[in-house]
Simulated scan of single mutants.
Amino acid sequence: MQVMGDSKAQRNLINSIPKIKQYNGQNSIIVLDNFLRGLIRHMVVQGLTGPEKIEDSEGTLVVTNEDSGRTILMAGNLTEAALEWYQTYAEHPPDSFERGMKASAHRRTFLQIFRALFDRFITGAALKEINTLYDEVKYTTLGGVRQLFSDMKMYTQTMPVPPDEYRFKDNLLEKLPQSMRRILLNDGLGPNTATIDEIMQRALAVESGWEAEAYYDATGSQLNVSESETDGGESESEETQEGGESGGAQQPHLLTSWLKTQAR
């Protein structure tokens, strides 16, 4: 979403979105992915979209101003080792450039620089990290099925080689609570027979049933306690009342006996 024709409104919009978390060269796909997502948000707002190269008036393919803007935005959010690398690599012309050539025709594109940044700082250890994080995703009662699916999907999107659909469905079923998984499998919703959407819809329905059952169990327990307290109060009141009536009936009898004794 780009705000056109109103620079003040555009500045306000840019200031309203989260700032880009600067990248300093960490060997982490998660960190680099978050950095890229932040860049993309700001690119969209600032109108830095479109092709990376176009033909100029002479028919030469050159890097667009928008793509140069994307590169400048990235460079402004690099620090420490990443910034040093950028100054050494990206700010120097490529080997294909020679004196007398158009600089814009040989300038590196944003994607070329970002790929080089990835290759420079992301190693096999980072690839193992993302696989480990994916394997460690668990179902929680707080987040439920939706959070489980969201976390799994997030990590697969950052994997260089994500699991195929069958493996993802198999992993999803494995991570569900055992009783929920049993219901789904008994319904014929396995990795071979059901789509991801079918598995999710059934799991959400089961989870919703559990939540409703927990609600009514809690409500029923409170009602039982309340009724028990009320019954106890009524019983005690009845006993007191009966005791009072019995005592009142005895008083005339005792008084009569005492009067007879005095008359003698």
Rank of each mutant, 00 (worst) to 15 (best):
E238R: 11
E213W: 05
S235F: 14
P252E: 08
E236Y: 09
L223N: 02
E213M: 12
A218W: 00
E242A: 02
S237M: 04
E239H: 01
H253T: 10
T230K: 08
G220A: 09
A214F: 11
G209R: 05
R202H: 08
L254M: 13
V206I: 14
L223P: 00
L255I: 14
E238K: 07
S257Q: 02
L255G: 00
A218P: 03
E211S: 06
T240E: 14
A203R: 07
R202T: 03
Q251G: 02
E238V: 03
A212E: 13
A249P: 01
G209W: 03
S235V: 04
E229T: 02
E229F: 07
E211A: 08
S221Q: 12
S246K: 12
E207V: 07
Q251D: 06
S235D: 06
D217M: 11
A212P: 02
Q250W: 07
A212L: 15
G244V: 01
E236H: 07
E211Y: 03
R202S: 14
E245I: 15
G247V: 06
A203Q: 05
V225G: 02
G209L: 00
T230P: 01
A214G: 02
R202C: 09
N224I: 12
G248E: 06
Y215P: 00
Q250P: 03
T240S: 04
G243Q: 10
N224S: 14
Q241N: 11
G233H: 13
E213S: 04
A212Y: 11
T256W: 10
S226K: 12
E213K: 09
V225M: 10
G248A: 15
G209E: 10
H253L: 14
E207Y: 08
L204R: 11
A205G: 04
E242Q: 15
S235E: 15
G220S: 10
L254E: 13
V225W: 04
Q250R: 08
A218K: 12
T256K: 15
G248W: 07
L254F: 02
S226D: 07
Q241E: 13
A218E: 14
P252Y: 04
Q251H: 02
E207T: 02
A218S: 10
E234A: 11
R202E: 01
E211K: 15
E211N: 13
G247M: 11
G233W: 05
Q222P: 06
E242S: 13
L255C: 02
Q250A: 15
G247L: 13
E245H: 11
T256G: 00
S237I: 01
G220W: 06
S257I: 13
A203G: 06
S228A: 12
S246E: 05
S228R: 14
S237P: 00
E238Q: 03
V225D: 02
V206T: 06
L204M: 15
S235K: 11
G209F: 02
L254P: 03
L255Y: 04
G220Q: 03
P252Q: 03
G243L: 13
S221V: 05
A218N: 08
T240M: 05
E213Y: 14
V225H: 05
A214V: 08
S228M: 10
A249W: 03
N224D: 07
T256F: 10
Q251S: 07
S228I: 01
D217Q: 13
G232R: 04
T240H: 04
